[in-house]
Each structure stands twice: as C-alpha cells, then as structure tokens.
Write a protein that binds this DNA or RNA. Structure first.
Lengths: 149, 149
DNA sequence: AATCAATAGTTGTATATACAACTATCAAAC
DNA sequence: GTTTGATAGTTGTATATACAACTATTGATT
C-alpha cells in the first residue's frame, strides 16, 4: 500500500509525505517486533537494551552509556533496567572506579533469551528488507543517515 | 552521524542495520516534532488526529475511521479524542444513521491551533527533507512503500 | 418478534513514559 | 580541607498506552 492510500490526502507536499511515510513504516516495524517479543514478555526497547549489553561482550555499561544508544532517549532508563533486573536478565552494581556510576551487565539468562529470540527477530527483519535489493537497502541507509545529519 | 556510529557494532547485518536506522531516524523526527508541539500541549498523535479531521473538510469521521489512519494503531482512540474534546479542539456526537457510531469533527478552535502550527511544522518537516534532493525523497518514499508491502 | 453474532465504542486496570525534583559522588578551585 | 559546580542515577507524580472486558446497537437468522 502506497503511503498516499494510507493518509488519503491528495494535495500533500513531498516533505510531509516523506515524514509521514517514515513514521508509519517505522511504526509498522515496531508493532511487528512487539508481536514477536510479546511471548517473551519483553518490550521493544527492553530487547534493544539487552542487545546493547550483549554487544558489550562482558564489559559493563553505565546507565548513561546504555541510554545514549537507546532508540527512545526519553524513557526512564533506571526503571527500564529495573524491569530487566526483576526478570534476572541483567545485573546492576555500583562501579568501583566511580561510585556515581553503575555497572550493568547481561546475565546468562538474558543471553539465553536473546539467543532464543535471534532466529525469530532475524526472520522478521529479513522479511522487511528482503523486499529491497542489497543496493536499495544501502541507498535507504544513506538517505536515512542524511535525514539525521 | 552514520547509523554504524550510533549503534557501535561492527559485524551487523545489512537487514538489522536498516531496520535500526529506520527506528532511530523515525524516533528522532518524532522527538523534534514533540518539541514543536509541546508549547501547544499536544502530543504527536493528537496533532495527527487533528490533521486527519481537518482533512475531512467538514465530513464527520467515526472513531474507527480515525483509528485506521493513526500512526500508532494500538493507542486508545476514545481517550485520545476525549483529551481533544476537553481542549475544545474536537466535537463528538452520536451518529444519526448508526447509533453505535460517533461523529467526530474538528472545532474552529482546533482549526485555529492547527493553523498556528502549520508554519512551524512545515519548517520542521522541510528541515529534515531538505537534506535530500527531490529525486532522493521520491526514492525514499518508494523504498519505504516497499518495506510495508 | 426473539435470538444470535458482529460491529462500534467505552471503561477498568495494570504498566510504561515523560519530566522534574532530588540524592550522592566526584573533580576542581580556593 | 572546604566549598562549588558538574556529573550520574534515582524517585515522585502525573499522564499516556496497551489490552481485555464490557455495554449498546445493528443486521441477519430462525
């Protein structure tokens, strides 16, 4: 479905159309991701944080370091991590070098759950991007990078 | 800033990279929009609903008709409209032809506020898309349409 | 006309988010 | 070594969101 058919407005500028297209498409992707994550009782951003922590390969991350890389910067990182701690998926302790900071690491249980999700989430991402050629996907990344620049 | 520098992972697939780029970029756009809307005490989705109703050009819309076109389908449309009614920006009455439905219309106050927002919001959207040529913006729309297809 | 399923919204409730105010720690200046 | 400003997280609170259960109305079936 072309974006024009979703928004049902004819005389719309290219700029507005493009922004709405971006928002609608991103939202669709997010909704589908949430569906996959739901049985695991994980929100999209919680999953993202787990993935960030796994990427640290054992090196503890501070809250602000996690927050920097989160998709939604506004949300309350302390409480998001609280939820993950309650599920035994991450661990938090005071940083020895700077006692203002906290060291956050993913637990074995967190790693196990991520591993279970790797397949389905990869399948989902692939299902979106397989509609594009490699060249097109690269172009899309370039255009999005430009918008953020 | 290229998406690789934000997510700080080297060995990431093109598919995942593209999806993350989409989410990050869309979120940035949404955050900036919220900033513009904040002084008017409107959320991004409330603004979107007002715009949908203005597009109806006087023809009342049902709740489900509004919901269909909302960016975030999941949210509770009844209560979102409640908020707009409380601000006198929209009006709701029972539909005469089908008393299960409601007729929602934008009020003059709603139209006035939208008009005040037209300038700043257009400036914001343009600021994102001006980094792209017309050709590139059209390509972006095509690629996003493909992802949703 | 009575029953039933489908449709359209509303309401209850638990959770999440946004934002501001707060506490604790550190680093630099005096 | 005390004061000060900056940094890092936490907590309080109000609002928003997600999801399910509910009510009301309609259209179709018997």
């Amino acid at each position: 479905m072309k974006i024009e058919d979703i928004i049902k407005s004819k005389g719309i500028s290219l700029e507005l159309k493009t922004v709405l297209n971006l928002l609608y498409t991103s939202n669709l992707v997010q909704d589908k991701s949430s569906e996959v994550l739901k049985p695991f009782d994980l929100s999209s951003e919680q999953f993202n944080v787990l993935r960030i922590l796994r990427g640290q390969k054992g090196v503890p991350a501070s809250l602000s370091c996690v927050q920097e890389r989160m998709i939604c910067k506004m949300s309350n990182t302390t409480r998001l991590v609280d939820k993950l701690i309650a599920k035994d998926m991450v661990q938090r302790r005071v940083c020895k070098k700077n006692r203002r900071k906290v060291d956050i690491t993913i637990t074995q249980k967190g790693l196990d759950i991520l591993q279970q999700l790797d397949g389905p989430m990869k399948a989902l991402n692939d299902s979106f991007i397989e509609k594009l050629s490699t060249k097109e996907a690269e172009t899309l990344n370039e255009l999005l990078d430009k918008i953020r620049s």
